[in-house]
Design a protein around this nucleic acid. Structure first.
Lengths: 360, 360
DNA sequence: GTGAAAGCGCTAACAA
DNA sequence: TTGTTAGCGCTTTCAC
């Protein structure tokens, strides 16, 4: 790796000043053709690549947007240097999860950045989010997108003092950051109404973990429909991430033996719904024959599942795009107020609620 | 957005020199506790975020790895500003494709970068890959990973003069760049042998598009098995990307009406295989009853398909990880020779070859 | 149209 | 242990 040629090298070879070289790249038409050609030829010959660091320093902008994402395998015990990532059945066993929520949102962010001429810098939100890690990203970008809960609020607020920060899928905006959310409440109400009105169910249990930011809105959407129909609300707790399957199995077993199974499990996410369907299947309880199960998110996994999962689909790609868009707008012309946007959701009636499969 | 505080501000507030501030962040233990605390307190109070540009400039390294990826929706006509990305059934219709090849590889790159303390910069390979776009990424990173065919060879070679470049899944290394590939030939031989030996097939057609870099190796793997068995090689051309479905339908129709259907279509990718299975289904030809179909790649889509696709699974995540790893090694201690690595593949016997479904 | 020169914010010798 | 002082490569007035 030879030393990277700089503007000075190009300038010297072209017989002009560095200012002219810089100018040639930024305002090609404002430079005499002969000069321009000389510069371009020199740059080509030297294999000149402008340094983004230097440019960023001089301009005070980096032209990059940052996203804190998740490193799936990265933190698992097995992933030491030299360790192989599983790639046979083992890897595909995860097919339910990929592409999942964050993948789709990330794609949206990616797309919008590119469309608007920014590059995307992806950082890891799940690792040791030390001061240094955060700085590594935050100091490198003109705007930052984060998933709720990935970074402590205090840090986000601090970063937002310097560059715009948008929270992806944050329900309420309580901290002055920009945010994009979806209509969690409305979606869940519509879904619950479907169960009540079309299927005539009354004993409908809401399944959701504590501490999940979207949960409360989904729960209140469910509650609203239940109350409107005059039927009592009922909840079932869920396990923390990672023990979903075991917990669902235990819950189903307990409810079944106590003969207290509801007519439907309205789960706060697709992932949960899938886990409960597994648990029910294992217990020999038919879905939707004996009990209905619904999800929320609209992941592909629910679509390929049998019975196909009735759920509420979030516009995930759009969520990412909107987030990036807000960010770039703010970079371009900083506003003083927090921008908040709510996106619509779509009710996806499939099989697990008891409806017949359509063409899907 | 207030002006970002700099080392100078922190130094002043802490009553030390800028060097001490810098030092406090890089070698905290080499600074007197009292001093360190003063600096940290000042930094916190000021909301100081070090500028990666300045740091990169001074150090001559950016701490970032670049990847040219694909912007799926980004180039479609409908994606103008303000246009909504589809998110209902329309979006999920693509479920066969996501996560696809590049997603998984990208995940691998991402993971390895994070593991080794680098951030990932994702650029768009499909757009107008102008000089400027390339520079935007190349000038910003310490190493670059690319998918074959995304950037002109000439440009890659030029970039590689300055920073290490690795080609992901490139079969042969003919240009001096680093590369990671998989055992395309061996995998295809094993698959073809399975068809010949286990299923007793003899009229096996190879399906593959022209110009696809891995194709020739897969084809020769197929050929080797065919020749070893003493049966004649037979090929079927495929359409360029985007018209796969139509082309497959036409091919199947043509072959069927001429009564020249082979006993098996050995496709060079899963995507092709899926398209052919669709075409066969539409023509009322049973798979694997009447004809076997196999793929190559091991995408999730093949697993959820019915019949499940018999294929060769590539270690995609590992491919990305290995690529990033090579890059980072080179950044750390530049070598003089091109590093090439070949990864093993796995034969995934499922249903579309005529085998019984296992527990999958 | 082109050049000179002053930074942009940080790091890394080298001194002290 | 901490401060001084050069740069790192590029952009951007401001003159010429």
């Amino acid at each position: 790796m030879a030393k990277r040629p700089t503007v000075y090298d190009v300038a010297e070879r072209a017989g002009v000043s560095i200012a002219t070289v810089s100018f040639t790249f930024s305002q090609p038409h404002k430079v005499r053709p002969a000069t321009r050609e000389a510069v371009e030829e020199a740059a080509r010959a030297l294999g000149y690549l402008p340094s983004a660091s230097a440019r960023g320093l001089a301009r005070g902008k980096t032209g990059a947007i940052g996203l804190f994402s998740f490193a799936y395998y990265a933190h698992e015990s097995g992933l030491r240097p030299g360790t192989q990532t599983p790639f046979g059945d083992e890897a595909n066993e995860d097919f339910r999860m990929f592409p999942l929520y964050h993948d789709e949102v990330q794609r949206g962010v990616q797309v919008e950045c590119w469309r608007r001429g920014y590059v995307l810098m992806v950082g890891d939100a799940k690792g040791t989010t030390s001061q240094a890690d955060i700085a590594a990203i935050a100091g490198r970008v003109d705007g930052l997108a984060v998933f709720p809960g990935t970074l402590p609020d205090e840090i986000l607020v601090r970063i937002s003092k310097r560059i715009p920060v948008v929270e992806l899928s944050i329900p309420i905006n309580n901290n002055g950051l920009h945010g994009v959310s979806v209509d969690n409440e409305g979606g869940m109400t519509a879904l619950t109404e479907h169960l009540i009105e079309i299927h005539g169910l009354r004993d409908i249990a809401f399944v959701g973990p504590e501490g999940f930011p979207d949960k409360e809105h989904r729960f209140s959407g469910y509650s609203r429909a239940m109350e409107a129909a005059g039927v009592p609300v009922r909840t079932v707790a869920t396990a923390p991430e990672g023990q979903l399957a075991e917990f669902a199995a235990a819950t189903v077993a307990g409810l079944a033996s106590a003969k207290r199974l509801p007519q439907a499990f309205v789960c706060s996410t697709d992932e949960e719904a899938l886990a409960y369907m597994d648990a029910l299947a294992a217990a020999g309880i038919s879905v939707p024959g004996k009990i209905a199960v619904t999800g929320f998110d609209g992941l592909v996994a629910g679509l390929v599942n049998r019975p196909a999962l009735t759920t509420v689909r979030q516009p995930l790609v759009e969520l990412g795009r909107t987030g990036a868009s807000i960010l770039i707008d703010q970079v371009t012309q900083p506003g003083t107020e927090a921008v908040t946007r709510q996106l619509p959701v779509k009710l996806m009636i499939r099989e697990s609620c008891g409806c017949q499969a359509s063409r899907e």
